[in-house]
Simulated assay, not measured.
Amino acid sequence: MLPSSLDPEIAAILAQLPSPPKGSMTIEERRAGFAMAVAGMQKGMESLLPNESEYTVEDHAVSVEGGEIRVRSVVPKGGEDLPLLVWFHGGGWALGDLDMDDYYLKILSVNVNISILNVEYRLTPEFTFPTNLNDAYAGLKWAAENAKKLSASLSKGFMVGGASAGGNFAAVVSLLARDDLFFKDRPLTGQLLIVPITVHVDANVDQYRSELLSMEENKDAPFLDADTVRYFEEILQVSPEDPRISVLLAKSHANLPPAYVQVSGLDPLRDEGILYEKVLRNAGVKTQIHVYPELPHGGHAFFPTTKNSIKFNADTEDGIRWLLSL
């Protein structure tokens, strides 16, 4: 896939903003910058929010090893026996929180008429891997055990989803759940993988080398560059070949739930998303994939009112409907 030019609408917006700082940043500086970007994202979504009378929101506590995490349910008003989507936020496993996708998930829940459980997990580097993954998996199990409390019926649909590092978690927990007797009678029915991380930047990928070019081609991409990917994967302190991050390298991808994959063209992660869909499809998994050549990583969320982002987010909703139709 040839490198793309930046969406002109997004380019015009970025030209009005201050240039991002150059050089190394502390995790605190990265979090502060990310929080500002999230605030801007939410401001852009305000006009898209459904009326508060159209949904209910409730926070719950989930016990995990060494403490507890919060999860937040979003349920369309009057909904009952709804399909369930368990969501994991992005942020390189080190940024973000339960609030960052709050607006987005309210919109998604009402538009598609599904129950959504947003799972917060403890962040690296304060909590070492696999604490955050274990938290995400604990949230998934809690959802399975408390579907009725969430106005959901797993027989109507039981999906996992997320963007970026959250997409990585969605793919990884799909593998874990496939092999876990806990889920034998309540299997996952779909994966929503939005601009996902599927292989560690330092993993041995010789067999795929010719198909993984975007980390170099898009190394200086706006919003997420290759150095930033490397930073977050390094502070995670996980073996690059561990399938709990490099899900692309799992021994088998057979019998995984159907996957809807979305990939941004101006993204260092572009090719690993495209390749993961191919690997799933070759393993007999039902898949759909859409690629958006002009969008940078996260552009669909941070610039939600541009033409390409509107298309991306409408496709997400249709992708969920497709997963529920199978």
Rank of each mutant, 00 (worst) to 15 (best):
M1Q: 10
S4Y: 05
D7F: 08
I13H: 07
I13N: 06
L14S: 12
G23S: 07
I27A: 00
R30V: 06
R30M: 11
R31K: 15
A32F: 08
A32C: 11
G44W: 13
M45L: 15
P50A: 02
N51C: 07
E52R: 09
E54Q: 15
E58C: 12
D59C: 14
V62E: 13
S63T: 15
R70K: 14
R72F: 03
R72V: 02
V74R: 14
V75W: 11
P76H: 07
G78I: 01
G79F: 15
L82C: 09
G90H: 05
G91S: 05
G91V: 04
G92V: 05
D97W: 00
L98Q: 02
D101L: 04
Y103E: 02
N111W: 15
N113A: 11
S115V: 13
R122W: 00
L123N: 05
E126N: 06
E126V: 03
E126I: 08
F129C: 02
T131F: 13
T131P: 10
N132K: 03
A136E: 05
L140E: 12
K141A: 05
K141D: 13
A143N: 06
L154V: 01
L154N: 11
S155T: 04
F158G: 07
F158A: 08
M159R: 01
G162Y: 02
A165D: 01
G166S: 14
G167V: 02
G167P: 04
G167I: 01
N168M: 06
F183E: 03
K184R: 13
P187V: 01
G190L: 00
L192C: 06
L193K: 08
V195Y: 05
P196N: 04
T198I: 10
H200M: 08
A203C: 05
V205G: 04
S210I: 06
E211T: 08
E211R: 11
S214Q: 03
M215C: 12
E217Y: 07
K219Y: 08
D220C: 10
L224A: 10
D225H: 11
A226S: 13
D227W: 10
T228M: 14
Y231R: 07
E233V: 00
Q237A: 10
V238E: 09
D242A: 11
D242Y: 00
D242C: 09
A254Y: 04
L256T: 00
L256F: 01
Y260I: 09
Y260F: 15
Q262Y: 14
L269G: 01
I274D: 10
K278T: 12
K278F: 09
G284N: 06
V285I: 08
K286L: 15
K286R: 12
K286I: 14
T287P: 09
Q288V: 01
H290N: 10
V291P: 04
Y292K: 07
G298F: 03
G298H: 00
G299Q: 03
A301Y: 15
F303C: 06
F303S: 02
T306E: 01
N308T: 12
S309A: 10
I310L: 10
E317S: 06
D318Y: 13
W322C: 04
S325R: 13
S325H: 03
